[in-house]
């Protein structure tokens, strides 16, 4: 499974549409984690969604994003966890440990929207431990 987190100064970038870089974390079958940086190509939501798809991203954890961008990302078959904030490492750890639904990880006043849009509450297991990597 590949997870992408657009970032700025070590924190999740506040606005997905304005982010230039992202951390891509890949879980290898043998249990190792590979982490690398990628540039987010394209300025339109569609171009960005296509780029994420081309990179084989399965999950996008990001800050605020517009509905049109959210639709395009989800239409590309990528699981979306939007309106997230915080230091990248901490957010990734929280995601791995299935505790990314805490208030502190969401942009102010956006938790409900995040859960509705990203369907966060439907998670049942730690995705990094899954066999679909």
């Amino acid at each position: 499974m590949k997870i992408a987190v657009p970032f700025w100064n070590g924190h999740v970038a506040t606005v997905f549409e304005a982010a230039d870089e992202m951390v891509v974390i890949e879980n290898l079958p043998e249990g190792d984690r590979v982490q690398r940086m990628e540039f987010l190509k394209g300025s339109s939501p569609l171009d960005r969604a296509v780029h994420l798809k081309d990179l084989g991203i399965d999950v996008l954890i990001c800050g605020a994003l517009s509905r049109s961008a959210a639709h395009r990302v989800e239409a590309a078959g990528i699981r979306l966890i939007p309106f997230v904030r915080g230091p990248v490492e901490e957010v990734i750890d929280a995601f791995r440990e299935d505790r990314l639904d805490g208030e502190r990880y969401f942009l102010p006043g956006c938790r409900a929207m995040a859960q509705n849009q990203g369907k966060l509450c439907r998670r049942r297991r730690n995705p990094l431990e899954g066999s679909d990597s």
Binding site: A13, V15, A18, G63, R85, L107
Partner: peptide, 12 residues
């Protein structure tokens, strides 16, 4: 403020 306003220019 950037996390409340969420403008495309806030960070840069």
């Amino acid at each position: 403020c950037k996390e409340v306003l969420k403008a495309d220019i806030c960070e840069k």
